[in-house]
């Protein structure tokens, strides 16, 4: 268990991820050019790279459930939020369809649903062992996360929820994720048995399993879903309210 070696050699160069990120950046540049807020896009890409190519991803690959959980949060909660912040300030979805008013409901269901859906035991295990399923999971997390954040972080005010509704949206989302986190933390339920199955000899980081006992590993996963995830929602609630209060510094920064 050599942490230095992990930090140096744990990086991978998955061509699909690198290619996907490049293509996405090109498309984004073509669509928005200099109007895009590139700082945020770079941050979003960095988070994706951190989640998918870094040593964290190496550990999430069947070694540690807690690493998997961190990866999950980065892809569902952090990267999509940063991506929306990267959109040009004037960007708006020109949908006149009456169903567009229901978008927040869909977004909420997407955010919570993604968390619960991919942690059904069969799917959690499948995503850990099968490449295509994992690719599907990654893409769906990013897409559902974007859908979730849209009513909160959409650049144009008319695409966003009213502050009060936004607070309720985020608070209930926090409850939805906390519920799963609490269950994982406080009960002995096992949802990803892959993280306890013997590892293949080819897995170079197998000895990092010894970092935590299986029980601790699961608890940390649950706690990550409970406390840090909720902290992100709480931060977003603070953003909603400070925007509503006529934008002291923090909100200026996030909307300019």
């Amino acid at each position: 268990m050599n942490l230095n070696r992990l930090l140096l050699e744990g990086w991978s160069a998955n061509p699909w991820v690198l290619g996907g990120c490049s293509v996405f950046t090109l498309l984004f540049a073509r669509a928005f050019g200099t109007r895009a807020r590139w700082r945020w896009l770079i941050a979003a890409l960095a988070v994706v790279v951190l989640a998918l190519l870094s040593p964290l991803a190496a550990l999430a690959d069947g070694v540690l459930f807690s690493a998997h959980m961190t990866q999950h949060i980065l892809l569902l909660l952090i990267a999509p939020g940063l991506l929306l912040l990267a959109l040009p300030r004037a960007f708006t979805l020109r949908v006149a369809h009456p169903l567009a008013r229901r978008l927040p409901l869909l977004g909420w269901a997407a955010g919570i649903g993604a968390m619960w859906f991919w942690h059904a035991p069969a799917l959690c295990n499948a995503a850990a062992v099968s490449g295509p399923v994992r690719a599907l999971q990654t893409l769906s997390l990013l897409a559902l996360g974007t859908l979730f954040w849209w009513p909160i972080l959409a650049p144009a005010e008319r695409d966003r929820l009213l502050p009060g509704h936004g607070v309720a949206y985020l608070f209930t989302a926090c409850l939805g994720c906390s519920a799963l986190g609490m269950i994982l933390t406080l009960t002995p339920v096992e949802i990803c048995s892959v993280y306890q199955a013997p590892l293949a000899a080819s897995q170079p980081w197998a000895d990092f399993r010894g970092l935590f006992s299986a029980q601790h590993d699961r608890q940390i996963g649950g706690l990550l879903m409970w406390i840090p995830m909720c902290s992100v929602y709480v931060a977003a609630i603070m953003l909603e309210l400070s925007r509503w209060h006529g934008a002291p510094a923090a909100a200026e920064e996030l909307s300019s």
Binding site: F171, F212, M238
Partner: peptide, 25 residues
Amino acid sequence: SVAIALLSFAVWAHHMFTIGLGRAA
């Protein structure tokens, strides 16, 4: 005040450090 209200729901286990929730928790 809102932050306190929200966080107040996420910290109750600090009343339970002595029952052995485990180091992670």
